[in-house]
Amino acid sequence: MAKKLIDYNKYLRLDKFPLIWCPGCGDGIVLKAILRAIDQLGLDQDKVCMVSGIGCSSRTPGYVDFNTLHTTHGRALAFATGVKMARPELHVIVVTGDGDACAIGGNHFIHAARRNIDITVLLYNNWIYGMTGGQASPATPAGDRASTAPFGAIEPNFDIARLAAAAGASFVARETVAKPALMDKLIVKAITRKGFSLVELMTPCPTTYGRRNRMANPVDMVEDLKQRSVSVAKAERLGDELPDNAIVTGVFVDDESRPEYTERYARLVESLGGAPSTTSPVGAK
């Protein structure tokens, strides 16, 4: 079946182009996947609220025509929690990176997941702080070089998807930019699911990561992502045989039984005789 072509321009603020991202960066592939997913779901652009912190990934909201908020480094999830509680009817999507979400924003990340608040997190993981010039992040694989790890990172890296799963997220998945169609599918699922959903999107940074780690060619980096990808099911079968450098992709958690926060809060308000919180008192006429 031929796929319907989407009009990307409908969702883009073309006056903000050209993009800040470097040649060879994978973030543009992620951006298009997000737009295809939103288009497929037919979401009203006015009902989408995209929130970001600081970093390369966090520039995304600047380029898209939704309600967009570019906030403080690491705090996008705290900010998004405020938006979601004030306007529960919005599809709140946080775009963030490995440093933004898991270093300076790590605490907000695990607590938003623990609350299981209905926010979709699209986390661009490029293993590095790209915008500031290539410092190590909590996702930099142990042994790899960064400007602040000139002798190779001696810290182990986070498994971000499993971190969110352990903290209580109701939907957790991972995919790489080598497989854009699968990214679309997982983003659609993440937006559709109630509760805290995370899609960890592996995207290459040839400029600040690749160059330091013998992989300056962006095509090679995408090919490498593809080669190292192992599905969740296969990874389970392999057990201890799973290669150390494998990127496990697919759905880690899809559990609708985990109670969602804004709904639980609405029930609390109701039980106390308050007004339902599904509409904002500020916005009510």
Partner: peptide, 28 residues
Amino acid sequence: PITPASEIAEAAARDFPAAGGTFIQAES
């Protein structure tokens, strides 16, 4: 990391270990 101060951390990462010191990139 933060521009325009990152080179300080980068120089510390490079030079502190050999000087018997400690460099840690904090999470915030």
